[in-house]
Design a binder for these strands. Structure first.
Lengths: 139, 139
DNA sequence: GTCATCTATAACCTTTCTGTTATGTACTGG
DNA sequence: CCAGTACATAACAGAAAGGTTATAGATGAC
């Protein structure tokens, strides 16, 4: 992922309204009106938030009649997560808590089916490389 | 993690200079002068970036003689990652790639010692809950 | 105490962000 | 085709971000 891509994704995620929009889209595609309703904010304001999210690649859009449906595109979230993973070694025991969280989710969705353990994930890593982040871009 | 906390963490990560500073700190604590050197930017500018990182909890600082050392505090990164995990279900096969990445790191750091496998992590999750993000804060 | 060093703050400027209201545009249904 | 619905864009305003230079403050050495 490019430095600018990270700028846009993290920048998009830095706003609570936009995170709420993503959360709403997680439960299904929605048009602008539906996305505007929960907020005390004008429709144009939401349209611009949507544009920010679209530029970051976090949503895609298509027409349906006169409406435009927004669709969650989580790939950039994955890339952001992958970037964070570069610092996983510094989470140390914190990482284990995250891993425990993952396991919890796993178990919950595995329901009564085969239980799946995640062994070997509790070892403490030593210092390794981290993305150098020497992008040096300027405004 | 609070909504404002996420605002600050993601906001801090949205700047390439700040990400580069974090990357530098991953290789050890550093004073302001050392952090300024790699950039074509004044020392006060870096001091302000450091303040943003500090407010987000991403660094802590202590004095050593006349210098002030910055220290990476990765806990907020972990929390940001945990937030992203709320969308893991949408990564689907993408998630498996992230998991593969984790496995790769595991293996690399495990070196010639005991090889550790991560079974059961390739199952595709179904829809679940996602942080609702209805924070509704305003500026 | 005084000097030297390292960092923070003040004051300022420009650009970007985020919201507003008003208006334009695109698509559909009858 | 024309009226209505749904959304986008324009124009504007205020606040925040991010940089600069100049200067103040804190700390250790002597």
């Amino acid at each position: 992922m490019t430095a600018q891509g990270l700028d846009e994704v993290f920048g998009a995620l830095a706003d609570p309204t936009r995170r709420a929009i993503l959360a709403r889209l997680a439960s299904g595609d929605a048009n602008v009106g539906e996305l505007t309703a929960p907020f005390r904010m004008s429709q144009p304001a939401i349209s611009r938030h949507l544009k920010v999210l679209e530029r970051a690649g976090l949503i895609s859009r298509r027409r349906r009649a006169t409406a435009r449906l927004s669709h969650l595109e989580a790939e950039p979230l994955r890339e952001a997560a992958a970037w964070l993973v570069g610092y996983r070694e510094y989470w140390e025991e914190s990482y284990e808590r995250l891993d425990a969280l993952l396991s919890t989710l796993d178990r919950r969705e595995a329901s009564a089916s085969t239980s799946r353990s995640r062994p070997g994930t509790s070892a403490k890593p030593k210092r390794k490389g981290v993305p150098d982040g020497q992008d040096q871009s300027h405004r």
